[in-house]
Design a protein around this nucleic acid. Structure first.
Length: 733
DNA sequence: CTCCTTTGTCTTTTT
DNA sequence: GACAAAGGAG
């Protein structure tokens, strides 16, 4: 017991020893939070609590995995402790209980992409204005409602009077009906339905209350209302609830996270013990000072002050480079230099606001042969070929899954197109059967007589698959699928680099399946799919590998590195464009918290970098430096290695899109020539365009990869085209 | 019905 | 610049 407490400071010790009753642990960045949680679990076990009765909830799979490892290292019985994310916790419990509320226990999980497809389909079928109700915006609103535990009926009532919301409520209701018919849950449903089961079946709730007598929730500041209710329900019998969080690190407001959950915890639970962990063990003083300086600009927060015993360290520097390319070059040069002097690649992380910003940096790292690992971004399971194969698996696992069926029915091409599927879907709906059932009864649908042969071939293949799956492992089944459908064969014939990499990805998926079979006793198809659908990123970082880490600021939360770069520290990127335009102060506060998170990832040295001009969305933009630079006051030193300093937006000298009319030389330092090559016509020349005929060229602009040409057509007006893409042809007069 | 070309949207962040 | 959707030709 002493062993556990030995290395802890008094506050940490108190947190570990306070095992009974509600406990709010306000743990600043780098204050040894994970250590405390691990120690607390070990302490509970030594005190005689059965590991089986302890539950720890984290936000990401990565965090869950890490905590599990730590707990296992700290105590022998660690493996019996329930450590997992909100979502997988709910899946596990719903697999045993959801039949009570009318779903079947082998339900499918729809990810964001599946949901979007379904919503798009619904919007189309309902004949609403697709311009006004984009699938994305509707999905966002439905998600909001689910996070607030608002069901379609209640939402419809609340929406009364607002035409837009009324419509969305209608879509929400249809969406829910479809999900149920498909025996599917989306991400938000996992929490929502879990709460529904618990609320309606007190006996089930009590069973789990008795099971999870000690509950710990990490990153509590990121919980949304539904998750809050879930935790509240589970903990209400024994009240042994310990929540750990830092309101300054709440960065998931856009996902429904409700910062009030942590701010009001004391009000909500009587006799709450509050413990603040304010000693930071991670960063040097300059870094911590900077973090404190930035975050004090926020109004909505609990007062706290992080301090460190670490002595003075290296100053934070802010570097402005001419272009995004030079910025990338600067960063990788710094790393290369440091590694030459004995640092290892592991010591470095490059953080950025949006995934798209990683590209230029990656390319530069490749050029310098610096090994790196990219987190997040286009994740493995998001790739088309992987989604295709998984759709086959999902469909065989749950033939009610129309979304999966639609995805695979004509992939590879079988001559069953959209029109056919839609007709079958109408038939299915009219007869209240699933799409697949409709296809199996294709002879009943007169209009599809001509397609019957192809469809029968398909349904026969599917029933073969169903039989095959029963007798074989997941990996063998994937092999069978690519064999019988000719999926890989088709890619081989294509022969392009892209096709080759797709084949490799499929091989990788098979390896993952084999791995899964080795590691799990329960290696059924359904558990494989579950595993796969709840994992967002590719395998977490392999600590043994010596590589630089690249990731978004969001995914960096909870991690630390000796040296951190925050790239694209510019207004319009970080803080984001929307935020700069938006008047909502909360949005800016969240952005500032994100900045706080970023700064506090660094242990010894923090670089901030910005570029005067960068390629963004295929266009060159130039931003002014991030407003957070000013908020950092004297805590950061501006280093401008080249040319003139700038304080104001550069638009005066830097037109967003340089014109190639006058003297192209002026800008050519930073803006590369489009690879497409210059068009063979100039201003005033006549060109032919396929739709509008002959027109006069008014303007030619460099648009990054191509030239944007403005052409005036008589009687039509001016139109813009990409010179290369739209194959404009010069016409001799 | 498929293939090809053209047009439009997108970029905030993730389970 | 990537990708999906729309639109047109065969």
């Amino acid at each position: 017991m002493n062993e556990i407490l030995q290395s802890l400071n008094p506050m940490q010790k108190k947190a570990v020893e306070t095992t009974e009753g509600p406990l709010l642990l306000l743990a600043g960045a780098g204050s040894g939070k994970t250590r405390v949680i691990t120690a607390r679990i070990a302490y509970l076990i030594e005190k005689g609590v059965r590991p089986f009765n302890i539950m720890a909830i984290t936000f990401t799979n990565k965090a869950a995995r890490e905590m599990k490892e730590r707990v296992c290292a700290a105590t022998q019985q660690g493996s019996d402790v329930w450590v997992s994310t909100f979502h997988s916790t709910c899946v596990k419990i719903l697999r045993r209980t959801i039949d009570h509320i009318g779903y079947s226990n082998n339900f499918t999980i729809y990810d964001a992409d599946d949901s979007e497809r379904l919503i798009k389909q619904i919007i189309r079928s309902m004949n609403v204005n697709e311009k006004m109700f984009t699938a994305k915006s509707v999905m966002y609103e439905i998600s909001n409602q689910k996070n607030e535990l608002v069901d379609p009926e209640t939402f419809a009532k609340e929406a009364a009077g607002d035409m837009r919301f009324e419509k969305i409520a209608e879509i929400y209701a249809v969406y829910q009906a479809h999900l149920k018919a498909n025996n599917a849950l989306d991400f938000d449903d996992l929490i929502f339905k879990m709460v529904e089961v618990f609320k309606n079946y007190p006996d089930i709730l009590e069973k789990y209350q008795d099971r999870f007598r000690y509950i710990m929730v990490d990153e509590y500041q990121d919980t949304n209302h539904a998750q809050y209710v879930l935790v509240k329900l589970l903990s209400s019998k024994y009240e042994n609830l310990c929540v750990v969080g830092d309101d300054d690190q709440s960065i998931y407001g856009w996902r429904g996270a409700d910062i009030r959950n942590i701010l009001d915890f004391e009000k909500d639970h009587k006799d709450t013990t509050v413990i603040k962990l304010e000693q930071n063990y991670r960063s040097t003083k300059p870094i911590l000072d900077a973090a404190n300086t930035v975050i004090k600009n926020n109004f909505n927060r609990k007062e706290k002050n992080l301090w460190t015993e670490k002595k003075e360290g290296e100053e934070i520097t802010f570097h402005i480079l001419d272009s995004d390319l030079k910025e990338a070059d600067f960063i990788s040069s710094q790393i290369a230099e440091a590694v030459k002097n004995g640092a290892s690649y592991n010591d470095f992380a490059i953080l950025y606001r949006a995934n798209a910003l990683s590209r230029v940096i990656e390319e530069n790292l490749v050029k310098k042969s610096i090994p790196y690992k990219l987190f997040g971004g286009i994740n493995f399971y998001g790739r088309r070929e992987i989604r295709d194969i998984l759709a086959y698996l999902k469909f065989i696992n749950n033939p009610d899954d129309d979304i999966a069926l639609r995805r695979i029915i004509n992939v590879p091409k079988r001559g069953i197109g959209n029109t056919t599927v839609d007709k079958a879907a109408v038939f299915a709906q009219a007869n209240e059967i699933t799409l697949y059932e409709a296809l199996c009864n294709i002879d009943e649908i007169d209009e599809l007589k001509t397609r019957a042969k192809k469809i029968k071939e398909f349904t026969e293949l599917m029933s073969e698959f169903t039989e095959y799956e029963k007798r074989h492992s997941v990996s063998e089944f994937i092999d069978e699928i690519i064999e019988k459908t000719g999926y890989v064969e088709e890619l081989k014939i294509e022969g392009t680099e892209e096709a080759k990499s797709r084949i490799e990805n499929i091989q990788e998926l098979i390896s993952k399946a084999v791995e899964f079979e080795k590691g799990n006793d329960d290696a059924r198809l359904s558990s494989f799919l579950e595993d796969v659908s709840l994992i967002a990123d590719i395998d977490a970082l392999n600590e043994n590998e010596d590589t630089v880490s690249l990731m978004t600021l969001h995914s960096a939360k909870g991690l630390e590195f000796p040296t951190v770069f925050i790239a694209a520290f510019e207004d319009g990127i970080f803080p984001s464009y929307r935020c700069v335009m938006d008047t909502d102060p909360n949005a800016m506060e969240e952005e500032r918290r994100l900045c706080y998170v970023g700064i506090t990832r660094a242990r010894n040295k923090l670089y901030l970098t910005a570029a005067r001009s960068r390629l963004h969305n295929g266009k060159y933009i130039s931003n002014s430096k991030s407003r957070f630079v000013k908020e950092l006051e004297d805590k950061v030193k501006e280093v401008i290695p080249e040319a003139i300093k700038f304080d104001k937006p550069q638009h005066a000298t830097y037109k967003p899109m340089p014109k190639y009319v006058g003297s192209p030389k002026t800008y050519s330092n930073n803006i590369p020539e489009p690879s497409a090559g210059k068009p063979d016509f100039g201003i005033g020349d006549k060109v032919r365009q396929i739709k509008y005929g002959i027109g006069t060229v008014k303007e030619i602009n460099n648009a990054g990869a191509d030239y944007e040409v403005t052409v005036e057509f008589e009687g039509v007006g001016t139109k813009k085209f990409m010179a290369h893409l739209s194959k404009l042809k010069k016409v001799e007069e």
